[in-house]
Design a protein around this nucleic acid. Sequence first.
DNA 1: CATGAATGAGATTTCATTCAT
DNA 2: AATGAATGAAATCTCATTCAT
Lengths: 214, 214, 214, 214
Amino acid sequence: MHKGAASLARLGQNLSPQQLIGALVERGELTDPGSPRGRLLNVAARQFEQKGYARTTVRDIASEVGILSGSIFHHFASKEQILCAVMREVTIFASARMRSAMQQAESPRDKLRACIQSELEAIHGQAVPGFSILVLEWRSLSKDSRKEVLRLRDEYEHIWLIAIRAAKCPGGDAALVRRLLVGALSHTYSWFKPRGKGLSIAELADRILLIFAP
Amino acid sequence: MHKGAASLARLGQNLSPQQLIGALVERGELTDPGSPRGRLLNVAARQFEQKGYARTTVRDIASEVGILSGSIFHHFASKEQILCAVMREVTIFASARMRSAMQQAESPRDKLRACIQSELEAIHGQAVPGFSILVLEWRSLSKDSRKEVLRLRDEYEHIWLIAIRAAKCPGGDAALVRRLLVGALSHTYSWFKPRGKGLSIAELADRILLIFAP
Amino acid sequence: MHKGAASLARLGQNLSPQQLIGALVERGELTDPGSPRGRLLNVAARQFEQKGYARTTVRDIASEVGILSGSIFHHFASKEQILCAVMREVTIFASARMRSAMQQAESPRDKLRACIQSELEAIHGQAVPGFSILVLEWRSLSKDSRKEVLRLRDEYEHIWLIAIRAAKCPGGDAALVRRLLVGALSHTYSWFKPRGKGLSIAELADRILLIFAP
Amino acid sequence: MHKGAASLARLGQNLSPQQLIGALVERGELTDPGSPRGRLLNVAARQFEQKGYARTTVRDIASEVGILSGSIFHHFASKEQILCAVMREVTIFASARMRSAMQQAESPRDKLRACIQSELEAIHGQAVPGFSILVLEWRSLSKDSRKEVLRLRDEYEHIWLIAIRAAKCPGGDAALVRRLLVGALSHTYSWFKPRGKGLSIAELADRILLIFAP
DNA sequence: CATGAATGAGATTTCATTCAT
DNA sequence: AATGAATGAAATCTCATTCAT
């Protein structure tokens, strides 16, 4: 996995989000968004993010995908497995994206900016929505599933900690800074709309960087 | 209401949380925590915070209060109305608490620290539990209820914006700073435990202040 | 009871609806509409007629009367007893009214007209609403209550049959004619509004007479 | 729809009730009584008629159909939707039946007799039970559902008005005559039993015709 | 794989009724 | 007589999940 990650990093260096997803699909780490399972995951992710896991019924998901609710269980053993799969894929995608983005950045400060922007893109992106599920719906996950996702997540958080330390953020404690950032960034889902006359994601990332690493 | 708020502020300057609640109850702004309705709201708030609104059943609440589930509907027309009432009361209490805390602080920086600490105390405190619900369960609220709570919330957010502007945080945009703080602070609910060998709430507030207003 | 009925007939000959009610109250046959119990019955009757017995809650009734639902049970042992009482009083009032009206009429035809008009007034009147409950909510009554109301009703129906026979309605069978009239008249509740530019109750009675006794 | 109605009339001229239902099912206007949904509607109609809508529970219906109560909501969103569907189907069937009956009659008087008999058969018949529900349970329907059923009912009432006018009933006003007939006929449900030594439906229709069109 | 029907456990809600004060 | 709180049985409804076709 480490080896895989490294080679992907090289691979991902100049890829668009779509191309990155393509590469990850090829490696069997992400589900093809064009496949029935992939469409299902995308629809589920969007609805979980919009309405929350508990308020989303498998019928809702099925009907948007264009199948009947019973058919979902040919793809997933349970509703919770859908949530778990969404979280896994979101984590994998966000990890790959962030690693690639960071490698293209040079200064420590730019690397941190890249992290922030990368996470914002995961939250607000269309490709594999949505990072905020990882925070908002964490309690909806069973213990076993949490462990599984946490294992994937560790690597991701590790990159962040390195970036924060390198950028010498005030406040000293990198773990604290990261925790504040997790909350702050995931909450952007409920007020920031990238499409519009307001800030772009890149601009928002800049502003946030200015605060956390002045 | 403005006049009322002002006089309460004077009144609240030296009050303990319990006394503050007492004063608000007297004014008819909060439900008496000793009344059946008040006990119900407190229990509901705690459970909504712990398990989430959807995973809390009215039976759970009723059984902790010591009544049968049907009896709840003597006090509230629906489960959602309980959530709405919880949010209303939490907002009112948090507003009063923060206003009082801010008035006791002197410098702009101390005022912002007071805001941060006050919100952290609301999130992690025991007096009127349920502050994090405002963020975590916002999507569980119907549109009409949201409007109602938002009206109360405006006043609370207004205090924040004034404090942020006065403290001259970098990043310039007070609204943006507040939004990041909302996410960052509410997320502390899931990782920060005030009882323990780690940071105290006051220390955490200091650290956060250091980041947002270095 | 026969003797009582006869003396009331004499008494009632020139009474307005209000006066008739007054006389019946005096004799202990009707509840005083000004008394708590009487107000309760009036409110219940109106609501049963408008929404139906099953869709009317004791809370609805209590709240219109201005008391709490529990207090209703100081006056009536059960909701069904309210319905039963309403039906009893409606029957008694309608009987007295019709007897009085018939005595003032002279020709058999006029007597039948008086019956029709009298029943229409019972259905649409404000004094003791509403006769249509007797038809529409018959199935909501327990067997015992039915017997009780039927006993009162017998006398009423007896007057009708005599009037129909005397008027020599075509169709021959007086019982059949009466049954058709029961349905036709009680159904007027759902389409006929006496207040308005349309027909008056007297005019409607005339039209109906024209059909059933041309 | 007008064209469709006309061709069905031709089609229906010699059909038995069962065949008429078959034809309507084919056209998608009625639910197949053999389908789960159709069985459900028939059971519901019978129970609503016998016990009234409010006193019929979805459990009652489900248990007679042979499924669990929860399964009902696979077919209908709410209990009220069942009532609405019953009323829709009853209206459609009764319309088709009456149109067909009227076309087989020749004189205006016979056509009116056919209408009366047809409605009596609908009320007392077994084919698609539930006609009396249209009157008895009208108040159990929500406003929106009422509108929907009223639209279908218009056509049915239109046929009646034409038949009444052509038969030159005394009383002049065809709408009034129809309204009296609605009440009179639907009320037969509670006293007329076609199976017995008494009148047959056809004889009852004759007697009623004699009264309304002497 | 998808469908359509059903399951079944459990959720919220309703509401007549009771009762201590 | 009224209040306010609670009861408790039963109702409607929800929804993830199963399964024969």
